[in-house]
């Protein structure tokens, strides 16, 4: 995921909302989280490839309805595929069934191919919908929304701290790496590399713990009592009602199609 690192943390760095999408902006973050979760559970439980393709189409349609950069988002989704591709490639050879052809004496089965396509469609449909519906929220808003969805307070605090300090610590990491670079450090296949990166990680741990002690002192000084002050109200509006009804109708359509088509294809 190397090429994503540069683009990655920036998402979390941005303190102000990236208002890239007009359609979703007016929605309650809670409806977006609930919709993404329901969509994931629905897609995972479907079997028919036709219906799954429609589900993936729904994710792409949602992406197009927003004003997210289409290419960049799809590229990010494809980066995940590079992780699972070897597992998918193996499937046609390991699922028993009718052999289409033989590769080095191993049968390539039609059933295995279908299974690989099924997993590929499910994984991409779910992650794309998640990135479009929830990934476009500001990280802090995500924390607040989870809090209002009855996530344990401690967990939400932990999430907020993590979100806050990822960017800070990433800068610290880059500063340490820059310091190594000016001393002619280069990544190689050597014990020296592993030793240096090990020391780097150790140093980051030490500095992080020191930093957290200062944070705690600052929080205590301001009389922090463990409650999360929530900025801004989240309200389930008419827009959310429309969104919920449309989502539910689409979900029912997928289920009915699955039932009509059966597990044929």
């Amino acid at each position: 995921m190397g090429h994503l690192v540069s683009s990655g943390p920036k998402v979390l760095v941005s303190a102000d909302t990236v208002s890239a999408n007009s359609v979703l902006d007016g929605l309650d973050p809670r409806s977006r989280i609930a919709a993404a979760l329901a969509f994931a559970i629905l897609i995972v439980s479907l079997k028919s490839l036709t219906v799954l393709a429609l589900g993936f189409g729904l994710s792409v349609a949602t992406l197009l309805a927003t004003r997210l950069p289409v290419k960049a988002t799809l590229r990010r989704m494809a980066a995940m595929d590079s992780f699972i591709v070897f597992m998918l490639v193996l499937l046609p050879f390991t699922v028993p069934g009718e052999a289409l052809f033989f590769l080095f004496g191993f049968p390539f089965t039609f059933e295995g191919l279908l299974r690989a396509v099924e997993i590929g469609l499910k994984a991409n449909a779910v992650i794309l919908m998640l990135m479009v519906l929830v990934g476009t929220l500001e990280p802090v808003t995500l924390g607040h929304a989870l809090h209002r969805l009855k996530t344990p307070e401690t967990l939400v605090h932990l999430l907020m701290f993590t979100v806050r300090y990822i960017s800070v610590l990433h800068q610290e990491y880059q500063r340490l790496r820059a310091a190594m670079k000016v001393r002619s450090f280069r990544l190689r296949n050597s014990l020296h590399t592993y030793k240096s990166i090990g020391y780097l990680v150790g140093m980051m741990l030490v500095r992080s713990v020191d930093r957290s002690e200062r944070i705690l002192a600052a929080m205590k000084c301001r009389g922090f009592n463990g409650a999360i002050p929530l900025l801004g109200a989240m309200r389930f509006s008419a827009r959310d009602a429309v969104f919920t009804v449309v989502s539910a109708l689409l979900a029912v359509t997928l289920v009915v199609l699955e039932w009509k088509i059966g597990a044929a294809y």
């Binding site: 995921m1 190397g2 690192v5 990655g8 943390p9 401690t154 605090h157 932990l158 907020m160 701290f161 993590t162 979100v163 806050r164 300090y165 990822i166 800070v168 610590l169 990433h170 990491y173 990544l187 190689r188 296949n189 590399t193 592993y194 990166i197 780097l200 990680v201 980051m204 741990l205 992080s208 713990v209 930093r211 957290s212 002690e213 944070i215 705690l216 929080m219």
Partner: peptide, 22 residues
């Protein structure tokens, strides 16, 4: 919470580090 949160962020950043193997 602060120390756990900061450490959680540290491990997130550490998981972005790539090291060469072969």
């Amino acid at each position: 919470i602060p120390v756990a949160g900061v450490l959680s962020a540290t491990f997130f950043v550490a998981s972005l580090i790539h090291v060469p193997i072969g």
